[in-house]
Amino acid sequence: MSGFFKSSIGRKVAMALSAFFLMIFLLMHVSVNLLSVFSEETFNAASHFMGTNWVIQFIMQPILIFGVVFHFVMGFVLEIKNKKALGVPYVKNNGAANSSWASRNMIYSGLVILAFIVLHFIDFWFPEINYKYIEALPADPTRYYAELHHKFVSPLRVGAYVIAFVLLGLHLAHGFTSAFQSMGITAGRKKTLKSIGKAYAIVIPALFIIIALYHHFNH
């Protein structure tokens, strides 16, 4: 089995598994964020639960961080290996004739998402960790909504947010079906998977963007 994950196909499978994990996580994240549009109380309650439940904090969160790091480190490793496998590049190469832009530029859409994740950590995660574990301030189950709302005042941040999610949409436009293909589960289901993939790649990033814009324009 350890030999499997060292093979080219094993690496594809590992990449796909981490991607599936991230896609499920995104679904959960957008659901919680969506609450902030409908009800301040529910959003606060959900955030408080997520932020204090020990299973989520000490089991799910480390797994998530590992999953993200694994995914982009593996992405870089594969990109470097694949560049090496080419050797001398073509003088003229018409990639658009046979493949989508999104599929050829996963590393660039991925890099934008990575930059966003860094910003996201600075914005939300570090202050959160600081509040809870370093300064150990008293639990305040009502602070989350105000913090979120405050972050979307700056048009610069909202702009960066929108760009990152458009790129996430492109990443997923190829990534969703690609992950299924890597796992070898496409045969006979190509059309259905393509439709679901398209829907996922549009709806999830669009919801994140709408939520950001909602808070930006509701000040």
């Binding site: 080219s8 694949n82 004739a97 046979n98 996963m106 690609s178 293909q181 070898g184």
Partner: peptide, 24 residues
């Protein structure tokens, strides 16, 4: 040889129309 990222370019350019299902 490099690692497949499922761009699907091979299937389009293959003179014999070999399908990606074979990779799966």
């Amino acid at each position: 040889f490099g690692n497949c990222t499922n761009t699907g370019a091979c299937e389009i350019e293959c003179p014999k129309g070999i399908s990606l299902d074979n990779i799966a």
